[in-house]
Every structure is written in structure tokens, then in C-alpha cells.
């Protein structure tokens, strides 16, 4: 095919968008909406995962040892703890360090506990970091079973909530993405089928002047591609704007703890590339496939 012909066909595709602007507008509206919903589901999933990871990172358990344990025994307990599944890190804090830490947290009032030096009440402690917070309860009982450990403290309430949130978002998120993907394909191919139905005469004329099928297809494919690209760009801009707005308003109204958690919200810049590529590919592929699927019937003359 000559390049002048190819140029003509691409120009035709672009021109068709304007000539059939009502249908083009409808298709773009549908495609943009679907991309927006899928994009929102993706962003929510990604952020909840990131928040859970943040909470997980904070998720430490304090393991207090019984009074009067030998040095050798301490290191054996440490070994036992680090051998447990789900444990990623074990830090030892001696009685003295514990007291120092406490003094530090007292600040100016540290003199109040100065005379505790001789009869230090702080037990020897391990700070244990777990990998999966959904297993916190089990790890806790595992720890308690080790002889020499007197008490284990874990903030399992936060862990439970976050885990449940993650599961719900994960399930619903993927269900929504899947359902919307199917719905948008159906709607798009129906919209394009309606467009093509009104243009079957045009296709028929092309056939009778001896146009090959690929020649007839190219403008429609170009049209689908461009519509997909436009829709993807619009959806991207809308998502960009609302994400900034939403994150800002979340951060201003939140409590101190939530604000800390919200620090783990992923900045849009980090997601922009993957989201843009995803929108671009999904939009154009859906647009082109919609075109091809719906014109299949009319091309057989």
C-alpha cells in the first residue's frame, strides 16, 4: 500500500469521528467512565495495600522476659524467637537500655526515676517484628509458649482491622475491575455496532467499488484507536485531579494516628506512569477491538 493511501485512510478515520460525532461522543463517554471506575478501583487497592504495609512495618511486639534469667538463656530464647515463622527481626533490649529509654521518654522529669538504678524494675525485653500481621495472634501464642517469656504485648486490634480491610478491598477491587472490564467491552462493541449499522451503506459502497477488506477496516480501526486514546487521556486527567483533591482533604481532616497512616498514601507521580500506560493500552485496545468485532458482519458482501 502506498503511503499516500495510508495517510488518506488515517485521515478518513479521524474525519469519521467528527462526522459521526454523536456516536463518537457516546462511545467516549462510556469508555471514559469505565476507565475511571477501573482506575479508581486500582488506586484504592494499591493504597490500602500500601497502608497495610505501613502498619505492618510498625507492627512490633514487645516480649518481656521473666525476672532473673541467665545470659546464656537469654541468647537461647532469642534464637528460639527468631526461628519462629512470621518473625523477621528480633532486637534485644537489656534492663539497663530499657531504663535509659524510659528516662529519655520522661525527658525533664527523668530525675524522678534516678533512684531506680539499683533496683531496676524494667524486664529484659525483645522487640519482635512480624512479617504478616494477619498471623499476629498465632505468633503471640507461639511466643508465650517459649519458657522464660513472661508476657507478650501486641496491638492485634489494629492488625485485625487492617487485615480485614485489605481482604475486603482486594476481593471487591478485583471483582469490580473484572465486571467493569466485561461491561465496558459489551457496551463499547454495542455502541460501535450502532455506529457501523448507520454506516453499513458506506461499507457496501466500498465493497462495490472494489475495496479490499483491510482497506475498509483501517479507517474504523483508526477511529477506534483515536477514540480510545481520547477517552484514556480524559480519564487520566480526571483521576489525576480528583486524586490530588481527595488526598489533600483526607490529610487535613485526619487525626494524628490516621495522619501517620495517610503518610503511606502513594503520591500520584509514582502511579502516573503505570496508570497512564494502563489507560492508554486498555483504551486503544478496547476501541480497536470494538471496531473490529462489530464490523465483522457487515464486511461480508
Amino acid at each position: 500500500m502506498k503511503t499516500s493511501s495510508l495517510r488518506y485512510l488515517i485521515k478518513e478515520g479521524a474525519r469519521n469521528i467528527w462526522s459521526n460525532r454523536i456516536m463518537s461522543f457516546t462511545s467516549m463517554g462510556v469508555l471514559t467512565t469505565c476507565l475511571l471506575l477501573v482506575g479508581a478501583a486500582y488506586l484504592i487497592t494499591v493504597n490500602v495495600n500500601s497502608m497495610v504495609r505501613y502498619v505492618e512495618d510498625q507492627n512490633e511486639m514487645s516480649v518481656f522476659l521473666a525476672e532473673g534469667i541467665e545470659k546464656a538463656e537469654v541468647s537461647s530464647i532469642q534464637k528460639q524467637i527468631s526461628n519462629l515463622r512470621n518473625v523477621v527481626k528480633v532486637d534485644y533490649i537489656s534492663k539497663e537500655e530499657g531504663l535509659e529509654n524510659m528516662k529519655e521518654s520522661f525527658g525533664e522529669d527523668a530525675y524522678l526515676i534516678d533512684d531506680l538504678k539499683d533496683r531496676n524494675p524494667i524486664p529484659e525485653t525483645f522487640v519482635v517484628k512480624v512479617e504478616d500481621i494477619s498471623l499476629t495472634a498465632r505468633t503471640k501464642s507461639d511466643l508465650e509458649a517459649i519458657p522464660g517469656i513472661e508476657d507478650v504485648r501486641a496491638s492485634s486490634a489494629v492488625a485485625d482491622t487492617m487485615t480485614r480491610l485489605q481482604q475486603i478491598v482486594g476481593t471487591f477491587g478485583s471483582a469490580i475491575i473484572l465486571a467493569l472490564g466485561i461491561i465496558s467491552l459489551v457496551i463499547i462493541s454495542n455502541t460501535i455496532r450502532a455506529t457501523i449499522f448507520t454506516r453499513r451503506k458506506e461499507i457496501n459502497i466500498m465493497k462495490f467499488v472494489g475495496a479490499t477488506n483491510s482497506f475498509i477496516r483501517i479507517p474504523f480501526v483508526v477511529e477506534g484507536f483515536l477514540l480510545g486514546l481520547f477517552s484514556a487521556s480524559i480519564a487520566f486527567l480526571i483521576i489525576w485531579g480528583s486524586y490530588h483533591y481527595l488526598v489533600d482533604s483526607l490529610k487535613t481532616g485526619a487525626s494524628a494516628f490516621l495522619n501517620e497512616v495517610f503518610q503511606s498514601i502513594i503520591p500520584f507521580d509514582e502511579l502516573a506512569l503505570s496508570l497512564g500506560v494502563f489507560f492508554g493500552i486498555t483504551g486503544t485496545v478496547l476501541g480497536m477491538f470494538g471496531s473490529l468485532i462489530s464490523m465483522r458482519k457487515h464486511i461480508k458482501v
Binding site: M1, K2, S5, Y8, S19, K201, E202, N204, I205, M206, F208, V209, G210, A211, T212, F215
Partner: peptide, 20 residues
């Protein structure tokens, strides 16, 4: 069977364009 949104020129040119 003319294409309504093409000018007379383009309608005639159409069968030439189709043949590359």
C-alpha cells in the same frame, strides 16, 4: 449510492483511492 458526507470530488476519487 453516493457517500453523503463526501463531496462530489471525493465520491468520484473514492474508487481510485480504493485501488491505491
Amino acid at each position: 449510492r453516493l457517500i453523503p458526507n463526501m463531496t462530489v470530488f471525493d465520491n468520484v476519487a473514492f474508487s481510485l483511492r480504493v485501488t491505491d
